[in-house]
Design a protein around this nucleic acid. Structure first.
Lengths: 309, 309
DNA sequence: TGGTTATCACCTAGGTGTCAAGGT
DNA sequence: ACCTTGACACCTAGGTGATAACCA
C-alpha cells in the first residue's frame, strides 16, 4: 500500500514539465496505410538494364516525381516463364525522408524493439497466379562503428567492425506464402519486425550491433516447395529479388542521441502519444481538478474518467 | 465535460453489487498452455479401425484416463507414403468438460466474437519433413433450433432449420503451412477464431446461426502446391483428416442464457477479469478511499495508481 | 565517460460481460 | 415474450520514450 517513490518522482517532474514546442505537422502518413505515396524501389545487385520511369498516377500532397527503378532483367528465378518486371515501392517515404534528413536512429533492445517508421511496400509485376514469399532483412551499410557528437549534432566514425562472419536473419512476412495477386492488392507492412542487440536472441528477432549503420532490404521469392521457407533463418542462394531504399538507412542506438529524432518519433508514433507535450501527464490534470472537487471524490473520479476517455 | 449518465448509472449499480458467490476452483488450465492434458481425439468419417489406447504419461490433477481414438487408416491423402497414424488431442479438455456439463454457450456477434474456451490441440503422427495445413471449422450438430427454459435451466427444441445449403467457412491456422515437425512440437491454438451471426461477414469469420448447436472440427491437410490454401473458404474434397471432440459442442447465443455459464466464463477468461466479484468495480474502492483522503487529492490519486496496478 | 538496462507512466489495440434500448 | 444490438466500464497485452541505475 506504500507509495511508489518512482511514481512520486515522476509526478513532480510532470508538474515542472517542459512547455510545448511541438511543430505543427502533417499528421498520419505512417498511421494511414491507405494514403499511398510513390517512391523509387531500387533493385540491388542489378544485372540488367533498369528503366527510370516517371510515375504520377496517384495524387501526392507534395507532388514529387522520383525516378522509379524497375527491374527488367530476364534472369530472375532462373527461368523465363514470367513477365519479370517486379517493382517494389516504399510506402510512407515522406516520413522516412524526414527522419533520413535528420539522421534516422532505431532503438534496439534485448527484448526486441519495433522499427519506426516501419517498412511498408507495394509490389507490382508479380505473376498473379503464382505463390511468393516476401521477406525483410537488415544489412550493414558499412564496416564502421559510429559515435554521436552532441555539440555538433553529428555522427562520427569511431572505429571498425567486421560484419562478414554473420549472416543476417530474415523476417518472413506472416502472410507468406501468398499469391502474387494477393500480394499486389495490399500494402505489405513489416511493422511487427523487431530489432535486438541480443546476439543470443531466440525469438527470431533481427540481431544488430548498436552504433552501426544499417539498411533494411525487401526480398521477393517465388515459392519453392522443396524448402520449408517458414522456418529458414537465412536467404536462399538464388531466385530472390532484393530491393532497398536509401531513405530507410538508420543508425542503431540503445538510447536516442539526436533530440530531433526523439521529437519526430514522439510526434508520429501513436504509441508515443503519451509524450506529446500538451496535457502531458495526467497527474497535473488530476491535481488541478482535485482542487475543484474537494468534497466529492465520487464525482471527481467520474468526471476524470469521462474527460480522459 | 458533462458527466456521462451511463457512467453514473453503472457506478450506482456497482455500489449495490452482488455478493461474491464465486466457487473456489482450480485456476489456469486455459491460461497456461504448458500444462497439458491428455484427451481423446475422435476422427470423423472413420473408415478404418481405430485403436482405443490408454494414455497416462503426463500427470493429471484428477487422473482420468480416457479412451484415445487414433486414426490407423491407410487411405488418407490418397497415398501410402507415410505412417499414417495421425492423432489429435484436445488441450484444456478439463475446462471444456466443465462447460459441457453445464451446457456450453458461445456468444456470437455481428463484429465477431472469440470462443472461450478456445480450441487447442496437439497433433502426433505427422511426417516431420512434410508440409501441412491445419484448420478449423464449425458444423451443426443437428437441424434443430433451441430455446432456453429458465425455470428448468434446460435447453428445449424450438424448431427445425435446414443447414444443408450452407458450406461452413474454414479458418486456416495462421502458422500454415508448416512442417509436421513444427506442428507436432507446439500446441496448436485457435484462440483467434471469431464467430459471427452476420451472414454478410467479409472478415473471414465463421458464420453461425444463433440458438443452434454446433461443434468445432480440426482438419489436418497435406500441402497441395496447386491450390492457394491461404485463401480458400471451404475444404478441399480429399486429402483431409478431420477430428472433433464431444466436449467442445456448444450452443450459439447472442446473450448468455445459463448464469452458470456466465459465471464460469468470468472465472476463467482473463479478459472478463473485471467482472470477478471481489473488488468488482474500482468505483467502490475509489469511493471508500476518497473518504480517507478528503483533503489531498494528489496523494489520493497516487495511492490509487499504486494500489490498482 | 559513454553506452546499456530495467522499470515506469502513458499510450494503442482490442477482448470481456453488462445493461438498456431496439426489434420482431 | 424473446432475441439482438450497441455503448460502456473493465480488463489483457503490449508498444512508447524518460529516467536512473548499472557497467566497463
Amino acid at each position: 500500500m506504500a507509495l511508489s517513490s518512482r511514481a512520486h518522482a515522476f509526478s513532480v517532474e510532470a508538474l515542472v514539465g517542459r512547455p510545448s514546442k511541438r511543430k505543427l505537422r502533417d499528421p498520419r502518413e505512417e498511421a494511414q496505410p491507405e494514403l499511398l505515396k510513390k517512391e523509387g524501389g531500387e533493385e540491388e545487385e542489378r544485372r540488367s538494364s533498369a528503366a527510370a520511369g516517371r510515375k504520377s498516377e496517384l495524387p501526392e500532397k507534395r507532388s514529387k516525381a522520383e525516378p522509379l527503378a524497375t527491374t527488367l532483367g530476364c534472369n530472375s528465378f532462373g527461368s523465363l516463364e514470367e513477365k519479370d518486371i517486379i517493382q517494389v515501392e516504399l510506402q510512407g517515404s515522406e516520413l522516412w525522408k524526414r527522419f533520413h534528413d535528420i539522421g534516422t536512429e532505431m532503438i534496439i533492445t534485448k527484448a526486441g524493439r519495433r522499427m519506426f517508421p516501419s517498412v511498408r511496400v507495394k509490389v507490382k509485376g508479380l505473376d498473379p497466379g503464382k505463390q511468393y514469399y516476401v521477406a525483410i532483412d537488415v544489412v550493414p551499410v558499412d564496416s564502421k562503428r559510429y559515435r554521436y557528437i552532441y555539440h555538433s549534432s553529428q555522427w562520427m566514425i569511431a572505429g571498425n567492425t567486421d560484419h562478414s562472419c554473420i549472416t543476417p536473419r530474415v523476417y518472413i512476412h506472416p502472410d507468406s506464402p501468398c499469391s502474387g495477386e494477393t500480394w499486389m492488392r495490399q500494402i505489405i507492412s513489416f511493422d511487427r519486425v523487431k530489432l535486438t542487440n541480443n546476439e543470443m536472441d531466440d525469438k527470431g528477432h533481427i540481431i544488430l550491433q548498436s552504433m552501426h549503420k544499417y539498411k533494411p532490404r525487401v526480398h521477393v521469392m517465388k515459392q519453392d516447395s522443396r524448402v520449408d521457407m517458414s522456418r529458414i533463418q537465412s536467404l536462399p542462394a538464388e531466385g530472390v529479388k532484393t530491393f532497398s531504399f536509401k531513405e530507410t538507412e538508420f543508425t542503431t542506438v540503445t538510447a536516442y542521441q539526436n533530440q530531433q529524432i526523439t521529437k519526430l518519433k514522439i510526434d508520429r508514433n501513436p504509441f508515443a502519444k503519451g509524450f506529446r507535450d500538451p496535457g502531458r501527464s495526467r497527474y497535473y490534470l488530476f491535481y488541478i481538478l482535485g482542487l475543484l472537487f474537494k468534497n466529492n471524490h465520487w464525482e471527481f473520479y467520474s468526471l476524470l474518467k469521462t474527460i480522459t476517455k
